[in-house]
Design a protein around this nucleic acid. Structure first.
Lengths: 202, 202
DNA sequence: CCATTGACATACGGCGCGCATGCTATTGGC
DNA sequence: GCCAATAGCATGCGCGCCGTATGTCAATGG
């Protein structure tokens, strides 16, 4: 039958991708714990057997979903950072973009809520890449003399915490999103600006 | 039989308290999801019937546990804050103490991990009290002219996020806790100090 | 002293997951 | 071009866990 479409490997990749993207929206909508693997796999036209084969178990699927999201987020952040005119602006825009990306329900629910629940420490399990790049940016700024001395590993984590928490605050039900977004960006500005060497506020 | 001990109401309070404290350690040790209510209630010498009667369901028990922890934490923070010589020091010590309290496995696991998983937004559901007091402290500092203008609601949440995230970082496995604690407190110092009005660093 | 309330146990039902097993089709060596 | 081998996926079993309806017994108060 002319191999259906392509080689077998392609079909498999398609299946995996379909499973991941479907899981991604299912997790985002109902949450990880409230998503039945029976129902979910049925929605893709498969059964739990396929799930078990490709990802081992439910957690394995979650990991795959997280990795996909992480990859996209980091790619986006890298672009934003690279497009900035200087390192400070790159760092600043990275933080601001992070905050806005975390407004996506998908990211808040899967990364900030469910992943944390299952693996305890999100940054250690998944978000490590984002935090690591944040730290790298801080290291650069430190070397450039833009910011005063500080332990960059913690500071990266603290900024990550501040930004994600702010996103959760913005997205609270019955809130004026735009108004809150502006306030959050303002507050972020104040936090980051406090890190720069004193007397240099161009 | 002289009414066993005291009035019936007392016995009931004892039962409730026993359930809560036992659940507290069980959740802290195995996590909320991994704690079987059959096993747990049996450990107290009861059955799930009692659990249902007093707390409705598993989530109700978690809420009770959270409330107890929150109360203790806030009381502790209030004392620390009140003991400080001035408002800035009170605020500063509150943040520092928060960071150290979050090192307690019980708090990290139940408040920062499980509660978030079940209720989504922790601060909105439980930690609101702590964040609210943080915001109140910021409002005071703002009125006193100690810190420059900023939207205190978000800033309180961001500080909360930074502090809790730092605690998770400190408590990562195979880490030098003391070393990391010092670095975290250093970074926190830098973050908070950046909020003060420029030029006033006594 | 009795009716009522409330604290708790018991029991039933359902769901959701892990895992072992079985089927089928594709693949690669000869 | 055929045949074992492998891999993708389905099916079925068993268990644990939770919600809830119902039952029981003791305490309370009028």
């Amino acid at each position: 039958m002319a191999q259906a479409r392509r080689s077998r490997a392609h079909m498999i990749e398609e299946t995996r991708a379909k499973l991941i993207t479907t899981a991604r929206s299912a997790f985002a909508e109902h949450g990880f714990a409230n998503t039945s693997m029976d129902d979910f796999t049925a929605a893709v036209g498969l059964t739990r057997g396929a799930l078990h084969h490709h990802f081992g178990n439910k957690e394995g699927l979650l990991i795959a979903v997280i990795e996909q999201i992480e990859t996209e987020v980091n790619e986006h952040l890298r672009q934003v950072s690279a497009a900035a005119p200087n390192r400070w602006e790159g760092f600043r825009q990275r933080c601001r973009t992070y905050l806005q990306l975390a407004l996506e329900p998908e990211i808040r629910r899967i990364i900030l809520q469910d992943a944390r629940a299952v693996f305890g420490d999100v940054p250690a399990a998944a978000q490590s890449l984002g935090v690591a790049e944040l730290q790298a940016a801080l290291d650069q700024l430190l070397a450039d003399g833009v910011i005063a001395a500080l332990p960059t590993p913690v500071m990266a984590r603290m900024i990550y915490g501040a930004v994600t928490e702010a996103s959760c605050w913005i997205a609270e039900p019955d809130a004026d999103l735009n108004e809150r977004l502006h306030q959050a960006l303002d507050a972020l500005e104040r936090l980051l600006d406090g890190l720069r060497v004193t007397g240099e506020h161009p």
